[in-house]
Design a protein around this nucleic acid. Structure first.
Lengths: 333, 333
DNA sequence: CTGTTAGCGCTTTCAT
DNA sequence: ATGAAAGCGCTAACAG
């Protein structure tokens, strides 16, 4: 036999479907005698409300869609963790969807969320968000987590990647480093571009010479950059990678090559993923509070969904410097 | 104005809703002249199908629910990654839900998935799965990822934790270790219990003495255990932790205390999370292929949903030993 | 307080 | 090939 429905319960209890609905949803206007009978029957029939039907009827799914570029690496798992934490605190379910593939496909997927979710959390640092949101009806709430980029009319959580990169370079210079290499993220990524800009501006302000290696946030890029630097190790004294993962793999490669970190070469990352504390030496990095960002996004989205969003501007977040490699070149020379 | 519906499109195109539905879903029996007109109108109206309504009508959501104990740590992010990978390969969406809280609440949440999902992937190593599944209608497909435990009538992906723990102890003994400490997971967790059993059996078989510290898979437990061992460092030569996270934090604490790993004390973990390769020294561990397990679960579930599931027994998986700390006590003494 | 009835937006017989 | 109408399972007016 298939699933019991409200109608089954109603018939068996000898009442109307409306009463069943009322009783089971805790409406006050129902005699307790009747409520008990209905609950008993529901219990006996193993009745479980069909949430999909309810959603259709109430135009509320209590679900938010989460669109991410990828689920690889600690950055995204942290983000999802934060999102999940807050979502369940708000009584919201999470519909996960990562947009492997092109802009067109991603846009299609976003569309497809209609009727499944009450709102969207979107992170798409490497896509053109304007056209990504183009197909989306303006009525569906959405919040963007996207570095400095945004799309008009849509709220966004921002991170001041430029200032953070400047801060990191300043720190490296403060500790005596002068020949600082920057390993970038993929140039299609806004955040990576902003970090690079920050690096360049800071290097220029300090009167130093820039040295940029193009990477893509991947382990392989970290390895490749390290390999390249090993051969010219006497020409540099610090590596500032645009994310932790590349910094960490580079460090592993340096260790392999017998290069002392940070004595010979300081290594810094970006994000402060959990892993950063555990490698040795631990990684100096810019803490973005990724999971907190996910949580804030959800909280904000929940407000929008409930029409309680204040118009308060969302302040761009400045990552904080986390110094874990303490050797300073000034002191040891 | 609200969203355009089939009816809006139908009216504007001067056809029936049925035709709209047929045209937009690629039914063959519709004249191309009409299809074009409908598509044009849909386009113009910015019509996006309401997936929720379609789901209700077709009794298919193309979504699977994922229930996990927690989202903390690399183990779960790896699992979700694998699940996600396979799900999107199968054209399925993912409804994430972690069961913070008691059995009752978890069971409630599972119920609440009815009408939202076509099937469920459940991992609940620390709950009584029998009663967890009690409330769930037998008709809804579900697959369990739960170590050695299972519930009758429900397919499950198994991991042979016992044999794996034995293999690890064997390995440690092979490399000259004799006083092997086991740091357990939480005793409410089946997998943790099975690993402990494996450790005990192996230790006994080798005629050694067991030394068990109770932990709970957390970073703190790893730290606490390490602190305890530092004081008695001359009485042990290996630490076998029930998961990687504890092993890794313990290693960090040992380093802090000036204890040489693995020369003085070998450290081994369980799971082979990505992080295990990057700590130094890298961690010897049992590889579970967590993300692969997630993927297999989804693939299997997809088959069940489509009534294509063969009755083939699901072979319990034996984790593979990954040796990364190579120092053997035999050679150096 | 309870029952009747009309939807929510879509698919799908069943006629035509 | 197309249209009318009957649901999918639920909630919410609107009457009584």
């Amino acid at each position: 036999m298939a699933h019991a429905t409200v109608r089954d319960v109603a018939r068996m209890a000898g009442v109307s479907v409306a009463s069943v609905s009322r009783a089971l949803n805790g409406s006050t206007s129902v005699r307790s005698e009747m409520r008990q009978r209905i609950e008993a029957v529901a219990q006996q029939l193993g009745y479980v409300p069909h949430v999909g039907a309810r959603s259709l009827s109430m135009a509320r799914t209590h679900t938010i869609g989460v669109m991410l570029p990828d689920l690889h690496g600690e950055f995204f798992s942290e983000l999802v963790r934060g999102i999940d934490r807050e979502a369940s605190a708000c009584g919201l379910h999470l519909l996960l969807s990562n947009m492997h593939g092109d802009l067109h496909r991603a846009s299609e997927v976003m569309r497809t969320m209609r009727g499944r979710v009450d709102g969207l959390v979107v992170m798409a640092p490497d896509l053109d968000v304007a056209t990504l949101f183009g197909g989306l009806p303006a009525t569906i709430p959405a919040i963007l987590i996207n570095g400095d980029a945004g799309v008009p009319g849509r709220p966004a959580l921002r991170v001041n990647n430029h200032a953070a990169a400047v801060a990191m370079v300043d720190h490296l210079v403060d500790t005596g480093r002068r020949r600082i290499v920057h390993l970038t993220g993929p140039m299609g990524n806004v955040e990576a571009r902003d970090r690079l800009r920050g690096y360049r501006d800071a290097i220029r302000d300090h009167g130093l010479t820039e040295w940029v290696i193009e990477g893509d946030f991947s382990e392989e890029a970290g390895l490749a950059a390290a390999t390249e630097l090993v051969g010219r190790i006497d020409q540099c004294d610090a590596l500032f990678a645009a994310n932790d993962m590349m910094a960490i793999t580079a460090m592993a490669a340096f260790r392999e090559a017998g290069i002392a970190v940070p004595d010979q070469l300081a290594v810094a990352g970006f994000d402060d993923v959990p892993l950063a504390r555990f490698v040795s030496p631990p990684l100096t990095t810019m803490r973005v509070d990724v999971s907190g960002m996910g949580a804030r996004a959800v909280r904000r989205l929940a407000l929008i969904i409930n029409d309680q969003a204040d118009d308060q501007e969302l302040e761009p977040r400045l990552p904080t410097l986390v110094v874990r490699q303490t050797t300073s070149l000034n002191h040891q020379r």
